[in-house]
């Protein structure tokens, strides 16, 4: 990174911080002057207090325990989705028979929004880890599969032709050309899937759970503690933000040759 882009980045960060500060200030003013009732919008101080209560342990679980509860569901469902979705997407793009066999199934299942699976998942797998894992799996397999499929389909014909000219057989074409060429788009799918997995687990915990951030938010709602609700939402946001950040860092290291934003 050269000096210019460093200045640019610092400038952007500073600008972002200012706008965040303005929002926080407005939030504080609105609640402090009683313009909006405490019941609808808790004051920043109250939320901070609730966050402290959360981290000390809320409804039988510490903050870490809630985090672990949510994350374990996310990771198990997400990893399963990656392991099945990416190879399946690649295979469908590469092999016409597989495309013909699986295409219609994918086309029918894809438009179902993940939360619509929640009741069925509970019916099939119960309210514990397996049920929620399944919902996360369903929500994150779609971006994995679709991106892998498109990535392989859209490998520039030029690269395939060049490889064939150099003497690549079918296996080399797939493993040494098409898949590496598609990697940036596949990685993009994996990142979208991770976000989708996180969103879905919270939704699932809102419906039925005994721990996790979604459960925290819902408990805040049931107990009419809007500050707990807000603190739970902030925990969801921060965790999602950090996951995305980590993913981008890994991506930059694994695919150094691609154009990164």
């Amino acid at each position: 990174m050269n000096r210019r882009t460093t200045y640019l980045r610092v400038g952007q960060l500073g600008f972002g911080a200012v706008s965040l500060g303005v929002i926080l200030f407005a939030w504080w003013q609105v609640t402090a002057n009683g313009i909006v009732s405490e019941f609808l919008l808790p004051a920043p101080a109250a939320v901070f207090e609730a966050a402290q209560r959360l981290s000390a342990g809320y409804l039988g679980s510490s903050l870490t325990a809630h985090l672990v509860a949510s994350l374990s569901v996310v990771l198990s469902g997400y990893i399963a989705a990656v392991l099945i979705g990416v190879p399946l997407g690649i295979l469908m793009a590469w092999s016409r028979p597989v495309d013909i066999a699986m295409g219609p199934l994918v086309a029918i299942l894809r438009p179902i929004p993940p939360p619509a699976w929640i009741p069925l998942a509970i019916l099939w797998f119960g309210i514990d880890l397996p049920g929620k894992t399944f919902i996360v799996f369903v929500s994150s397999i779609t971006p994995c599969l679709i991106n892998a499929y498109v990535a392989i389909k859209e490998v520039p014909a030029n690269l395939i032709n060049a490889a064939r000219m150099l003497g690549a057989g079918n296996a080399s074409l797939l493993f040494r050309v098409a898949i590496p060429a598609g990697l940036p788009m596949i990685a993009n799918g994996l990142r979208i899937a991770l976000g989708s997995a996180w969103a879905t687990v919270v939704a699932a915990e809102l419906v039925v759970a005994t721990a996790g951030f979604g459960f925290v938010i819902m408990s805040g709602y049931r107990n009419i503690e809007s500050d707990i609700m807000a603190a739970g939402m902030i925990a969801v946001a921060v965790t999602g933000f950090i996951m995305n950040l980590l993913f981008r860092e890994v991506e930059k290291r694994v695919i150094p040759w691609a154009e990164h934003e």
Partner: peptide, 13 residues
């Protein structure tokens, strides 16, 4: 039968 293509065809990775 080696070909130098008209458009970009190196492997970016």
């Amino acid at each position: 039968k080696a070909i130098v293509f008209q458009t970009f065809s190196l492997f970016p990775w």
